[in-house]
Write a protein that binds this DNA or RNA. Structure first.
Lengths: 224, 224, 224, 224
DNA sequence: AATGAATGAGATTTCATTCAT
DNA sequence: GATGAATGAAATCTCATTCAT
């Protein structure tokens, strides 16, 4: 019932590298869970991919579900703290901040196996309520909050005019979720050649939103 | 040991029309697959929810996977033919058409258990390539095509100016997918009270996009 | 538990033809049991081949096992009585009688689907002790007895000299069983062209045995 | 609930040599398949008889059918190579060789659980064509070939005169098959006390055949 | 700490048998 | 009598988990 995944009990996430086992297992599990889904991934496979025996896996994670939790926690860990700091220290206009955030997100998350976690959580949420709660608390709500802060910054600085903040936040996030899922949708993706540039997609979306949110649309966009 | 729902007040358990069985099973399967995912749903549960025994299910669907296929096909069947006709006979402006389509989609699909199919397919795509192909052919590509036709209509009638159609189509669809998934995300959804109106969300999104696509930004938009 | 197969309760086996159902079912069952074995034959198949529904089959035979019993009984019924009479009225030498019996057996049994019953019984004997007892009493023991009578006839008439009767009987029967089984051995039979003549095989065998049994072998074989 | 055979007196259930498992399972499967037939034997039974759990069986044999194949192969493995060599190095007359082979066969096969395989194959041939092919190639055809070689040896050395070799081979084999089957015919065997000596049966049969095949019946055999 | 053989609960699927019509 | 939809016990096979070494 209770997990054994408190790897970070004594030290930082760098200390853990000393005994690389858990890390390799988490990596393997992440890849396989994302690739095949939780139910369709056998623990033997995870162990094999990590180069250890099945028994060893259970030395570190008492349960397959426990392994999933650890994977999710690992991928998530401390991401938002970091981003929060970056946001606070950003100097430019809010428009620029928003664009910047999107591009950074794409490089650090969207274009990363970590994005598969979003899909994984979406698929497994019903089956693991406890884990869902964790993910909501640690990812979804902070994510919403982060975007909310950015938008409020724009409003407070007189740059943006956003009447219904609740919708605005989701309008910003929707295309990000879209990309996260689409990149891991396997056989569903129509074989787009390579003329689809995700960053461009995000840019176009942001620009469309900003179009309607600019406080003084007359004196156009930023700079001059 | 214990028998099924005792509807035997007036008659036997044969009273229910036999032809209805497959439908009832599909309905039960749809609900459970959407609620718990394919792997986590046991066929006994589906049968029980449909008020029949496990064996009966296999009378109509030779395999659990077969049942999934049938569910997907059932929900999809002929949806796009209908919509194509509506689109062709629409008289108003393309802006109006786009708004209309979104609202109609929400009422006929998004706000319906059928929307859960999108999520289901997203989750199970890897495991059932054949089914994925079907869904892509029958839903995703026609969906893209439909939106593409609407946008091209606007361009051809001189109402819209859309330079990069490939992105435009996905910009339109992203929030719809977002809603479909979000409504079935279970424990991931932060318990929004009732102040979130999905139709409003879709409207805001469409307006933002149209803002940038209107052919005669003469008066408004940025610069001059 | 108890069987319902006493078709011959009131009348002869000809009366039964009036309602042909049971007969058609028995015929179908014989063919399928012989072709695929008891366990691998589904009752649906039997019913289908007989042109009736599964339910109907159970109207006549309370159990699949019961059906098997009826098939065996049907094929066996009264065969030995008939043969016993033929034997008693045979006029020629015992050598001729033996040859005659073999040829007749081949035409009436060996070359008939009924021969498949031997194989069937051999295969299913362990699983149905009661049926085995029946078959032993009704077929094997009478068969041994019949051959025994023939051989004893030869001894008594001074035609044959057979020291160990118990072995002699089985020596006569072995090639008959061999043929019965071989003809129904499916994929085991090496695809002999058509240069194997079962009657010749039986003849050669009988002659070999007679060779050693003739009381006055000097005055060679028959005719002259 | 209840655990397996409590051999835990001295040690654990791991004490048994792990390599022995497949062998023990094959032994158990052979016994049960021969005793009850393939279809009527449940894999749990096999496992139980081998002193392991159901799951363990599937660790070594991926399928029940696979287990059957392995049993057949195991029993067959390399038997004919050995015999071929013996035959080549035999020094005596062909008569003696034939008698010798029969007796050896009885001791090494006929009077062994391995003889049950013949019956098993006969019964299951229809259901497992691939396995039938194997058995035909590995047992039936080599067996025929072996007997053929013996008989041809006699002919070539001027000891025997055999006009129709195809029948001759089968005449030799028929009583062997007869015994193989009869010994495993369960309830079909009339409870012969112990006055039936299989070796004697085989001898009598061989002598009868040789009677007719001897090249120089001039002096010996019947009459004088 | 690491292994991997062993386990057994649980899931899907089959099919003889029942029974309302 | 005949039907065929419905049943549910039973069988195979999977795989997370355990544990002696």
């Amino acid at each position: 019932m209770d997990s054994t995944t408190s790897i970070s009990a004594t030290g930082s996430r760098f200390e853990r590298r000393k005994q690389a086992r858990p890390g390799e297992l988490l990596e393997a599990a992440l890849a396989l869970f994302v690739e095949k889904g939780f139910a369709a991934t056998r623990v033997d496979e995870v162990a094999a991919r990590a180069g250890v025996s099945k028994g060893t896996l259970f030395l570190y994670f008492s349960t397959k579900e426990d392994l999933l939790k650890a994977v999710v926690r690992e991928v998530i860990a401390g991401r938002f703290a970091e981003w929060g700091r970056e946001l606070d220290s950003f100097e430019g206009s809010t428009e620029e901040l928003l664009r910047y955030c999107m591009q950074v997100w794409w490089r650090r998350v969207g274009d990363t196996p970590a994005a598969g976690i979003s899909k994984l959580m979406l698929c497994e949420a019903q089956n693991f309520p406890e884990l869902s709660d964790f993910y909501r608390r640690e990812v979804i709500e902070p994510g919403n909050e982060l975007v909310g802060r950015i938008l409020r910054r724009g409003v407070e600085r007189g740059e943006l005019r956003i009447p219904e903040m609740q919708y605005a936040v989701k309008l910003v996030l929707a295309p990000m979720l879209f990309l996260s899922l689409w990149e891991h949708a396997g056989g569903l993706r129509t074989p787009q050649p390579n003329d689809f540039d995700q960053q461009r997609f995000l840019s176009l979306h942001v620009e469309a939103l900003l179009h309607g949110w600019r406080a003084t649309p007359s004196v156009p966009s930023p700079a001059a």
